[in-house]
Design a protein around this nucleic acid. Structure first.
Lengths: 141, 141
DNA sequence: GCCGCATTATTCGTATACAAACGAAAAACG
DNA sequence: CGTTTTTCGTTTGTATACGAATAATGCGGC
């Protein structure tokens, strides 16, 4: 005898629900930072502020971006004058990235708005549930 | 006096963790279905199997895809011979989509592999934790 | 029966995202 | 020291994803 096959319902699959949750977060992010930065650009800026200075590939690793993806992101941040690029004296392959003055001046506000987006996204849950969700999600990664 | 400002740590933000979790799911999906379908194409196929027949916009709504996105997805599924398109006799604007024979023949296997991807993704959690995660995630959407 | 509004599908532009391949430079190692 | 292996940055191609605009059609109200 075989066990009863569980039906496949798209709405019950983690992958699908993760996509929906990411979409909603993107919408809320857009409402607060849309005119300035995309979520990915935001992550790169915040990480660069944390790290101070690093290579492009290193920034990609620290923000979970592909080398090809991070190139485009950095290019656009440089075009906006938020990130500067300098040659690495000790390694001719790499260039060192850092926030420009304009970029640094923006960080405190980005943090504030970033917190707001997180609060917006988690708003349907009470604080204990929010902690539970984050703890479980982290274990998936 | 002001309350202590909570520092902004990228690794603690839902949006960022959601992106990481989605990335890991995409990797696991690729391992099981990469040569056949993308996650989005997969969702469209499964949904179309559930709905039987519908317009392109309707399929987009039921799979949380933009009208522009769903067009590309359907185009590629039609190119693979998995989806067929017919004119709607009662509405000249829309065309009715449905799975081809080849597409229908694939569904049972897609369901099986879809279940496997979900299991792979949730593997770090025990069954009770998996239920908790899904319940909380659903409330975010 | 006509007119304004909504819906369908398409198209354009921009921004991730990743695989794959490439040349240049650095590191590892015998 | 020289070779093998990594690493860095870039480029190409494909596939989401969404805003915005458009043309064609459908529909409700008067």
């Amino acid at each position: 005898m075989r066990g009863a096959e569980r039906p496949y319902r798209l709405d019950d699959q983690v992958g699908y629900i993760l996509r929906l949750a990411s979409q909603r977060h993107a919408t809320l992010f857009l409402a607060r930072l849309g005119s300035d930065l995309t979520p990915t650009q935001f992550a790169a800026m915040v990480r660069l502020a944390e790290m101070g200075q690093c290579s492009q590939n290193e920034l990609g690793r620290q923000t979970a971006m592909d080398v090809a993806t991070v190139k485009g992101v950095v290019d656009r941040l440089r075009a906006k004058g938020l990130v500067t690029q300098n040659a690495d004296p000790g390694d001719k392959r790499r260039s060192l990235l850092s926030l420009s003055q304009k970029g640094k001046a923006m960080i405190a506000d980005l943090h504030a708005r970033g917190h707001a987006v997180t609060a917006d996204t988690l708003e349907p849950l009470d604080p204990a549930e929010q902690e539970t969700l984050l703890a479980l999600l982290r274990r998936l990664v």
